[in-house]
Write a protein that binds this DNA or RNA. Structure first.
Length: 505
RNA sequence: GGCUCGUUCGUCUAGGGGUUAGGACAUCUCCCUUUCACGGAGGAAACACGAGUUCGAUUCUCGUACGGGCUACCA
């Protein structure tokens, strides 16, 4: 049987790191096994629907290179792929459960359920459930007469609840955790069908996975404890033989302290938790994405893949194809991983370093344009080449190399205080006049010229180099001064020296 | 509270009954460079705790602690 997996997010907001990783692992597993990767939108809760969230999810997957073969906008043999559009399909299965006695009608109002919880609440049991014990004291088709039930059903105000067995253990195999077992007495009678006519996640999910012939359910660990219900549902429907295999992924945790990574953590610690920028339609609040923060999609995906999975070798840099080849569910860890932004930066740096000057220039040009800088590509490529080993993000080329595009407006004070003395002006004027005669202005030529000048004038390199650098760039760090001079060209180099020497007096 | 999953350097992790417990990020030192990086060399740094099994447990078992998840007509 060919592998079919789905990523099934709820469009309640932007995808976060954990969601993208779940999608990635599904994608890798599908590709590894020559299977199909499906996107299914689980929008059964109208109240939590957020406009734009679905498009965001699709955009984010696309940016990461996680292209789905079936899903909204693409469709395929099992369309539609939005649960809201599949609404009519679920009723039949709900009725089937009623008929087989595995589900029942319940008519309790929220207030009545709350009253039950209040009444039964004890110190030992602060949150009594609607379950195999309490249902006998509630308003449902199990306690009401046939006529009473029919009358209330006719009124249309009801939900369908799963009739959980109450005894025995529900045991299933998890690809990551091996055998997992839950005592049935602790499971509650979950609502399967809501009074608004929509199924809940549990019903829709199982029915759709069945109808779409899903073979492996790879999802977050937050679903582990509702899996016994899902397993039971497969049994109730008589679908045990086609029940998918489960793999529950450990969560991505916040970098400091404990708990699940949240948007707040990102804001507080200064890093994104979403792949792309997101603007909340409610509050108008904007959240920065990894893309906008300067991450390359390949680096982002690579980083995410290694957060909870490892190849068992010491290789850390993987292209998507390499990830597909190396991936296996068996090598996914069991425990949650704390997200480390420093390591994420390292991945981006590694990818930037690997890129050619042409590729880097193509990435940098738009950034330059945004900042009102127009330069020919040949020059930008050379700047990228010189700066490549000193940057983590594309934007760094501009911030760290601004002097390639603009004359310095100030000079590093420390250097001036330490290196600019009364004789400096004379020395630099002499240097400039001799430099004016230099025909070859290549880096190597300027290098040789300056060294000769220092030797002939009985100076130390320290008397010339630091100031020379600061006159050209304003700052103390950067590529070799001679490279900067050569790139700037003779004319600009001379001009900057002249302006600087005048300014410093 | 109940149910459940988990626990190797600060972080991501490898390993697995007998290892100098390996790598990467971060950190520190040195080299390269009269800059900053990159790169190279080296350092510091971990098996949560207690029993049991065993000739021997970090590895197996059971407890404990700690942490996560779930405990909605949310997913």
């Amino acid at each position: 049987m060919s592998v079919r997996v789905r990523f099934a997010p709820s469009p309640t907001g932007p995808l976060h790191l954990g969601g993208v990783r779940t999608a990635l692992y599904n994608y890798l597993f599908a590709k590894k096994n020559k299977g199909v990767f499906i996107l299914r939108i689980e929008d059964t809760d109208q109240n939590r629907y957020v406009p734009g969230a679905e498009q965001y999810i699709i955009d984010a997957l696309h940016w990461c290179g996680l292209d789905f073969e079936e899903g909204p906008g693409i469709n395929g043999a099992y369309a539609p792929y939005r649960q809201s559009e599949r609404k009519a399909m679920y009723r039949k299965y709900a009725d089937q459960l009623i008929e087989s006695g595995n589900a029942y009608y319940a008519f309790d109002t929220p207030q009545e359920i709350e009253a039950m919880r209040e009444r039964l609440k004890t110190k030992e049991n602060p949150a009594p459930q609607y379950d195999h014990v309490t249902r006998s004291a509630m308003k449902n088709s199990l306690t009401l007469s046939k006529e009473g039930t029919e009358r209330l059903v006719a009124e249309g105000k009801y939900v369908l609840r799963a009739k959980m067995p109450g005894v025995g253990d529900i045991t299933f195999q998890d690809l990551i955790r091996e055998e997992v077992s839950f005592p049935a007495h602790a499971l509650d009678d979950k609502v399967l069908f809501k009074s608004d006519g929509m199924p809940t996640y549990h019903l829709a999910n199982v029915v759709d996975d069945y109808l779409m012939k899903i073979t492996h359910v790879i999802r977050g660990e937050e679903w582990l404890s509702s899996t016994p219900l899902h397993v039971l549902l497969y049994k109730f429907f008589g679908w045990e033989n086609v029940m998918p295999q489960f793999a529950h992924l450990p969560l991505i945790l916040r970098p400091d302290g404990n708990g699940k990574l949240s948007k707040r953590d990102g804001d507080r610690l200064g890093f994104p938790v979403f792949p792309l920028n997101w603007k909340s339609p409610d509050t108008g609040e904007e959240s920065k994405g990894f893309r906008e923060r300067g991450f390359l999609p390949d680096a982002f995906v690579n980083m995410l893949a290694l957060l909870g999975w490892n190849p068992g070798t010491e290789q850390e840099i993987f292209s998507m194809d390499e990830l597909i080849a190396a991936f296996s569910i068996e090598r996914i860890g069991k425990s949650g991983s704390k997200f480390d932004f420093e390591k994420a930066k390292w991945f981006n740096q590694q990818y930037l370093h690997k890129k050619s000057a042409q590729e880097l220039a193509a990435l940098l040009q738009p950034v330059l344009k945004q900042n009102g800088i127009e330069r020919e590509n040949a020059f930008v490529e050379q700047v990228c080449d010189k700066l490549r080993d000193r940057v983590t993000f594309v934007e760094d080329f501009l911030t760290a190399g601004i002097y390639f595009f603009k004359r310095p407006e100030s000079y590093d004070e420390k250097t001036i205080a330490k290196r600019w003395n009364p004789e400096s002006k004379t020395v630099f004027e002499k240097l400039m006049s001799e430099l004016a005669a230099l025909q070859d202005f290549s880096s190597a030529a300027v290098d040789k010229f300056v060294h000769d000048f220092v030797a002939e004038n009985n100076l130390g390199l320290g008397d010339v180099l630091p100031v020379f650098r600061v006159l050209l760039s304003g700052v103390t760090q950067g590529p070799a001064v001679f490279d900067i001079a050569a790139l700037l060209g003779k004319e600009e180099t001379m001009e900057r020296m002249k302006l600087g020497v005048e300014k410093l007096g």
